[in-house]
Design a protein around this nucleic acid. Structure first.
Lengths: 134, 134
DNA sequence: CTTAAAATGTTATATTATAACATTACAATA
DNA sequence: TATTGTAATGTTATAATATAACATTTTAAG
């Protein structure tokens, strides 16, 4: 079986590759336009690759921006939950890790008799670089 | 000046009214179809009303669902930040309030030298009713 | 009243995402 | 290796979500 990445297909590898080499989140149609040389011609091919990559946790979607970002954490367990710091100035994105968020949210949910399963968290503000510049 | 709601225009009132009387979040085009009798004919009229209502904090957007929900908290200060519990079974939505989340996120952000401004949080799972049924 | 800002009405179009269906690749196993 | 079932692909069309542009009207403040 080996690592999930070993099993990626051509289209999936192509899409993951462009995301991993991007310094910022990309939109589906941006990905499409950037890789039309590599045989991917239709939106659906991009979306299907993204779906799979998200499913195995190699890519996360940033909901508020309709953008996609490659996960940098080897063996990231965020197949479902994601937590991001998003810079409003330069659009850079940092992923928060660690389970302390999950246990915190579980408790918050419990107070409302709600059974926690997963979450999306997007924190907006200024990254270190942009803080210094302003 | 008085309360923000006093200053709402006809279209804004119409859109807010349908959201406040809905038991669940609504999509923009659902709102449009539901209120065409009241003189709203184009998507833009709905989106403009929504933009304004979001700006004054009477409505929040649920990013992962492209849906909109009326805020039930009198004088809600969540003009920008939002925190929701979303039931995966029945799609009901509960808004979390209180500033403890904000101070928690500020600290998490600071650990990454990130200057917190606002956030969107969406927690998915089972609401109290659906927990009991399953 | 006047005037400036905000909201409206309308048409067109941009952006994001999925449906449907025929075909191909591929791994498990009989 | 032949079979077979699952996943992935390729392709066309279309659905769903959201904004641009611009002329006009309403509104509230001075």
């Amino acid at each position: 079986m080996a690592l999930a990445s070993v099993n990626l297909t051509k289209n999936q590898k192509t899409v993951l590759d462009i995301l991993e080499n991007s310094s910022e989140p990309l939109k589906a149609y941006t990905i499409l336009f950037d890789i039309q040389k590599k045989g991917i011609k239709s939106p659906l091919q991009v979306y299907r690759a993204l779906d799979k990559l998200i499913e195995i946790g190699k890519v996360h979607k940033i909901e508020s921006r309709n953008s996609y970002v490659a996960c940098k954490h080897e063996g990231c367990n965020a197949k479902t939950s994601t937590s991001f710091l998003i810079c409003e100035n330069c659009d850079s994105v940092t992923e928060l890790t660690g389970n302390n968020l999950i246990s915190y949210f579980s408790k918050q949910a419990e107070k409302n008799n709600f059974n926690y399963k997963k979450h999306n968290l997007e924190i907006f503000g200024l990254c270190e670089n942009c803080k210094l510049k302003n």
